[in-house]
Amino acid sequence: MTTAPTHAHDTRPRRPKQERAVRTREKVLDTAARLFAERGYTATSVVDVAEQVGMTKGAVYFHFRNKEAMAVAVVENDHRFWPDLLAEVRAEGLDARETVLRFLDRAAEAFRSDPVVQAATRLRSERSLIGTALPEPYVGWIELLTGLFEEAGRAGRLKEGLTPRAAAHVVVASFHGVQHVSDVLHRRTDLMDRWQELRDITLEAILPRPREGR
């Protein structure tokens, strides 16, 4: 009598299932970001997110244990966005001065149109309503811009007597103030105009245009 073969454990790769889970999590998070940006933290529920995604509440909880975890994940995504954006700008091969300006141009556009950036900004302003700590704001921006202004200084493009960190503090405060005022008054529809004003007045002083022949 022959013995029936013993089936070995299934060792086929599980990547497709894992990739589906990653895509689903990203879809949930993108939807949560859009709702946080539009409605705010307290007016957005897990049920709202589930309905928008077309999932059950339980399926959403599989990816995020609660609404607080969603909020933290949105802000973490925002923090990862800026170094990635800078890498894209650096790939354009611009000089030190133009790299700073191009990065901030792209950042202003992101505040105007990107739901994750908008959601993270609103969540930070509503942090007292969220039952957990969010990643620390602005510090990453200050460090990133300090590095860019250091490069501009080495290239002779930073205003004489101005330290890179002081320049970074001024720009971070001014930039975020401009986007906040634009949001409160006009839902950021005028943000690119307001950014251009800041660019012309403040950035041109911090990063003077090179003189002819230099």
Rank of each mutant, 00 (worst) to 15 (best):
G140V: 02
E136F: 06
F64K: 07
T202L: 15
A120C: 04
F64H: 08
G54F: 07
L158N: 06
S45M: 06
Y41S: 01
P164W: 10
T3L: 11
V49Y: 04
S45I: 07
W195P: 00
E88A: 13
F64T: 04
L94V: 01
L129Q: 15
I130R: 00
T31K: 00
A91E: 13
V116T: 13
P210R: 04
V46H: 03
L94Q: 05
Q179N: 01
R122A: 00
V139T: 12
A32Q: 05
K27W: 00
V181A: 14
V184A: 06
R209N: 06
D10L: 02
R23E: 15
S128M: 10
V47A: 07
A32K: 00
R194G: 04
T121N: 13
T42K: 12
P210Q: 07
D200V: 01
R25H: 05
P137C: 01
A152V: 04
N66D: 15
R127E: 05
S45R: 01
A33N: 03
V60Y: 08
H7M: 11
R15Y: 08
P164I: 08
V178I: 15
E88V: 11
S125Y: 09
T3V: 12
G40S: 11
H63Y: 14
A87T: 14
E126Y: 02
T11D: 08
S128T: 14
A119I: 00
I206F: 06
G161M: 08
R14I: 06
R157S: 12
G140W: 06
P137L: 10
L207W: 10
R34Q: 02
A120F: 10
M192P: 07
V89R: 09
D183K: 03
S128N: 11
A43F: 09
E26S: 12
H9C: 05
L198A: 03
E51H: 07
R211W: 10
V171P: 00
H9N: 02
A110V: 03
W141D: 15
L145R: 13
V100M: 03
M70T: 00
G93N: 06
L29M: 07
D183W: 15
L158M: 09
L104N: 09
P137I: 05
H63I: 02
H7Q: 13
L148A: 10
E68P: 00
A8M: 02
A43N: 14
R65E: 13
L207S: 12
A108L: 06
M192W: 13
G131D: 11
R90W: 08
E26Y: 01
E212W: 09
R23T: 06
L123I: 02
E136T: 15
D48N: 02
I206C: 01
K159T: 08
T163G: 11
R214I: 08
R97M: 04
E150W: 01
T202S: 08
P208W: 13
G213W: 10
R199A: 00
E197R: 05
E92I: 00
F81I: 02
L191R: 12
S45K: 01
T24K: 11
D78H: 13
T202W: 04
R209A: 15
E51G: 03
D193A: 11
L29C: 04
A168K: 07
H176M: 09
T121D: 15
A173S: 14
L162S: 09
D105R: 05
T146F: 03
R194E: 15
E150D: 12
I201Y: 11
D200I: 00
A120V: 03
L101K: 12
